[in-house]
């Protein structure tokens, strides 16, 4: 799978390069604004805003772009590249999911570090996780929201988001694969993929809610663990179905 992974990264390189360039531009703007004799507050604000936009848009686009790559990999002649190699559908899909996950993780880490660096530059002091937590709590208090936020909870929230993102990705992949298997790249396969994706997501959402309601009431942490578990189980099921479809049902 290592070789497959290497080429999956290569396929998504273009978008990441663009994002890197845009980030660099915004960062340069920020640094320029922050290091002037009399710091230019509006410009700092704008550049921070730009950085946040790029970061969040970037994360979304990375996810979306890998859908596009899969679509292309299944519905154009470039599919031969993947399908003539001695690999099973499971490793092919697995490599794509891994690439997506790793890219998102690295992107998250990259922007977190950049943010930490930029915050240091502004406030001239290191900021710890506790400081961030306190800042968020202040923000929540100002919005009249509950401030019971422990580090554990924060970590759980992070993993819940991660797990649900994973199941979203795998769900989207399966939708694209199903559409390609049935329609063989005809005109509306993109639309059909999207519809299938919505269908599976909604269906799972309903099932998840039913399960949660059926369980005895529990603390927030436990219910989040259950959610993480369900997302993971869904991801595995959808992944297995995807791999099977690619192996047995997909013609290119």
């Amino acid at each position: 799978m290592g070789k497959l992974l290497k080429y999956e990264f290569r396929k998504t390189m273009f978008l990441k390069l663009i994002m890197l360039v845009l980030t660099a531009v915004a960062e340069v703007l920020f640094l320029f604004a922050a290091y002037r004799k009399d710091p230019d507050s509006p410009l700092i604000g704008i550049s921070i805003f730009l950085l946040v936009m790029i970061a969040s848009a970037g994360i979304t686009f990375i996810g979306l772009y890998s859908m596009l790559v899969l679509q292309r990999d299944l519905n154009t002649k470039q599919s031969y590249m993947l399908f003539m190699t001695p690999h099973s559908g499971y490793t092919i899909v697995g490599a794509k999911v891994l690439e997506n996950g790793i890219s998102l993780l690295l992107t998250g880490v990259f922007y977190s570090l950049l943010a930490a660096l930029d915050i240091y530059i502004i406030f001239k002091q290191y900021v710890t996780l506790d400081d961030i937590v306190r800042m968020i709590q202040d923000m929540l208090r100002s919005m009249d929201l509950p401030t019971e936020l422990s580090a554990t909870t924060a970590v759980l929230i992070f993993f819940t988001l991660l797990a649900s993102w994973l199941s979203t990705i795998v769900c989207a992949y399966l939708a694209i694969i199903l559409s390609a298997a049935v329609l063989a790249g005809k005109r509306f396969s993109g639309v059909v993929s999207f519809i299938l994706f919505l269908a599976i997501t909604i269906a799972f959402g309903r099932i998840a809610n039913l399960i949660l309601k059926a369980l005895p009431s529990m603390k927030i942490e436990s219910s989040m663990l259950v959610q993480i578990g369900m997302s993971l189980v869904l991801s595995v099921i959808l992944y297995l179905i995807s791999g099977w479809m690619v192996d047995k049902k997909l013609s290119v």
Partner: peptide, 18 residues
């Protein structure tokens, strides 16, 4: 399947490289 693809070299009529 996987084993046959190791031994079989297929060349299509259409271009297919990335």
């Amino acid at each position: 399947g996987i084993n046959s693809k190791r031994d079989i070299a297929y060349m299509s009529t259409e271009p297919y490289f990335y």
